[in-house]
Amino acid sequence: MIGFFLILLIIVYGSQWVTAFSFIDGIASIPKALSWLVGNFYPTEKSLQKIPTILTKLVETLLLSIAAATVGAFFALFSAIFGARPTAFSKPLALFSRGLATLFRNIDVAAWSMILLFSFGQSALTGFFALFFASFGFLTRVFMETIDEVGLGAVEALRATGAGYWPIVFQAILPASQPLMISWTLFMIETNIRSAVLVGILTGSGVGFTFDLYYKNMNYNAAGLTIVFIAATILLLDRASNMIRRAIL
């Protein structure tokens, strides 16, 4: 027990040293940041004029997040069917799709966006592909787990009736896992919006870029207002997702 805390202490101290992090500065920054938040959440007349710009960019970001999650879910579905135990029909294919998903999942969206900047520049496609790859990787994994959980018994029963592969997939696997898959896709949309803000800051697109512009020009009222709109969108989406979940699960 004492050894455990000693190791923990060493880890904390070591981490503090390499990152040059100071707990005192950290704690000191909190009241300042919070008072900034309070001070700048009041919209001013000037910042209110930015609302149309903010909303346009926000809608674009929202659509991007939905598109990436939806297209990601579509490809993840096939990848998961080929990779999950109850439905895998070829070992090399299963390994390939699992490997692909692991690769895409383990490169963070931020890293993806910096990679994709070379091909798509500041166009919305950089964000789309970054979010799509991350969605594909994550959803493949959770879809595979979903199929693993719902699948084996029903697949065995239908194989025993002489049913072919695709009928089993469409009539047993999909109906059984659809609600969970939709639920995960909704979760992914929410995650994507958060990531999209980050990707936008890094690649200069969407509402992340809008925020970054205000922020860098120290137009904190407008930056604060952008945060309010982003947070409200995420909260609303969370509400809507939960309503849908309650109806389908």
Binding site: T19, A20, F21, S22, D25, G26, A28, S29, I30, K32, A33, W36, L37, I193, R194, S195, V197, L198, I201, G208, F211, Y215, Y220, I227, I230, A231, A232, I234, L235, D238
Partner: peptide
């Protein structure tokens, strides 16, 4: 509901860009 990157940038106003703002 506020993305992490925004929290970090909010803290960067008071603590400056760097590890303190990032970790907090």
């Amino acid at each position: 509901s506020i993305p992490t990157v925004l929290w970090v940038l909010i803290f960067a106003i008071s603590a400056g860009l760097g590890s303190v703002a990032a970790i907090v």
